[in-house]
Design a protein around this nucleic acid. Structure first.
Length: 452
RNA sequence: GCCGCGGUAGUAUAGCCCGGCCUAGUAUGCGGGCCUGUCAAGCCCGUGACCCGGGUUCAAAUCCCGGCCGCGGCGCCA
């Protein structure tokens, strides 16, 4: 029996009277009648008494259906299986045995929507492989732990946006369909734009610089970026959310690092403030202790630290993922910080718009920001002097003609500026201490996965 | 892109190295039964699988080849 109905009129309760179970557990009046609705988490049938754990977006709560209280409710409850959507009306009572110390004694039960037998175990998500869980993502996220990931992610994105707005940055929304690859690389997705070749933006880099030169001075954007690199790792996605900002009138790239530090710390603080207990419960490896200060070391210092730790690395190399992990450990031990800025990367491993060091052009005014040994942000000061910028485009083997619209901006008054891109999923991942970035993306895209 | 590991009921796994004792084991799920205080309820009964194609062999889940799919490491990156 799917609906209780008379003719075509469904005898369903009005959800306007619905209460969230957390509210009832925390502040419901004992002895009063309430209506709750949600998914059936578990159901235990003991003959004439039935226990239902109902779950809504706020929490879980026990419902007791007794034959001698309402035979009709009891009969309906016997038909219920996990993940049915139900509504229950009944009296809130205290119960030492129930979770939360309270339960509802049902006088009426409605089956609102049935569920097939579940293809995955959602109560214990570890019993199912991540790949299968992603195939059934809409069920996977009904597990409170997995749902929490996305609430934390939303809080962190909100905190970042808040920070920028409070600090007088203007939010911009740049195009994700672009006519030329941002940095000349091959790692972009090609699309057909009517009859023209086009690409999905792999970064808002050039546009956010434009934002500065537009006269906005300080801009930010939180949006999708696309990378066509066929990575097979636990820390890459082909589509992710980038928290990007760019600011004019800076004295140097330390100003940019100050912002990155402030934003990321604010993201983590807000997540802890809102969800500390749940994060502790579900993510034992979460990063709940923030460092007093975050060290900033040059890549030359990093080379030395790594050499002393017997990691083979050459002067002028980029840091490999192994080096970054190792460096994270060393910094944690020596400075007591799970985070570190590594600065002044060699010009040869940085994009053309990076500003080179004035006296030693081998190095640049750039940085990576590592959290627990993983790169979560990259940034630096940009070259704003037209002649030098043009030279750098050529030096990187790029065709200036493809960047004409970009280059000409620098002939009409461009202040010294810099910025960074922060990988939202990577911040969430490192904060919660999860091992696969796909976990923190609702619908991850990787070289193989295109559905759902 | 390079390298490595893997594909057995709805889910997770054992078996594979050393072919036959596999009528493919276990857990969980699912269906049914008993049960008025459970809480991953319990007990009983039932249900359900060797990725696809080719080969070797008296005999293939097991060995070989090809394909498809999944996972991870590296490179590169956020």
């Amino acid at each position: 029996m799917l609906f209780t109905s008379i003719g075509d009129v469904l005898l369903l309760p009005s959800f306007r009277q619905r209460k969230l179970v957390r509210d009832l557990l925390e502040s419901g009046k004992i002895g009063q009648d309430y209506l709750v609705a949600g998914w059936v988490d578990t159901i235990r049938i003991h003959g004439n008494i039935i226990f239902i754990i109902v779950r809504d977006r706020s929490s879980k709560m026990q419902i007791v259906v007794k034959k001698n209280v309402s035979e009709e409710a009891w009969k309906t409850a016997r038909e219920i299986s996990p993940e049915y959507v139900i509504a229950v009306k009944g009296k809130l009572v205290e119960s030492k045995a129930a979770l939360g110390g309270r339960e509802i004694v049902a006088t009426k039960v409605w089956i609102i929507s049935e569920s097939d037998a579940l293809p995955i175990d959602i109560r214990d998500y570890t019993k199912t492989s991540l790949s299968k869980r992603l195939d059934w993502r809409f069920l996977d996220t009904r597990n409170p732990r997995n749902y929490l990931i996305f609430r934390v992610k939303a809080i962190m994105a909100e905190a970042a946006r808040r920070w920028f707005i409070d600090n007088d940055f203007t939010e911009i929304f740049t195009s994700k369909i672009v006519g030329a690859a941002t940095e000349g690389g091959a790692e972009v997705f090609s699309i057909i734009y009517f009859d023209k070749p086009a690409f999905l933006a792999q970064s808002p880099q050039l546009y956010k610089q434009m934002g500065v030169i537009c006269g906005f001075e300080k801009v930010f954007e939180i949006g999708p970026v696309f990378r066509a690199e066929p990575h097979h790792t636990t820390r890459h996605l082909t589509e992710y959310t980038s928290v990007d900002f760019e600011m004019g009138y800076i004295d140097g790239y330390d100003d940019v690092m100050d912002v990155v530090e402030s934003v990321v710390v604010s993201m983590i603080k807000e997540a802890i403030k809102k969800h500390k207990h749940e994060v502790e419960e579900y993510f034992p490896n979460a990063l709940l202790d923030l460092p007093k200060s975050i060290p900033r070391i040059t890549i030359r210092e990093a080379y030395m630290l790594l050499k002393n730790a017997n990691v083979s690395i050459e002067w002028g190399d980029d840091l490999s993922s192994e080096s970054e992990r190792k460096l994270g450990e060393i910094i944690e031990k020596e400075y007591g910080s799970p985070m570190v800025f590594v600065t002044e990367y060699p010009w040869q491993v940085r994009p053309f718009y990076t500003m080179r060091k004035e006296d030693e052009p081998f190095w640049t005014y750039s940085f990576d920001f590592l959290v627990r040994g993983l790169e979560v942000a990259t940034g630096g000061q940009r070259e704003h002097r037209y002649e030098l910028l043009l030279k750098q485009v050529e030096e990187k083997g790029l065709n200036p003609r493809n960047f004409e619209w970009y280059l000409r901006m620098f002939r009409y008054g461009a202040p010294p500026h810099g910025g960074a891109g922060i990988g939202l999923e990577r911040v969430v991942m490192q904060f919660l201490g999860v091992s696969n970035i796909r976990e923190v993306r609702l619908l991850p895209r990787d070289p193989e996965r295109l559905y759902p």
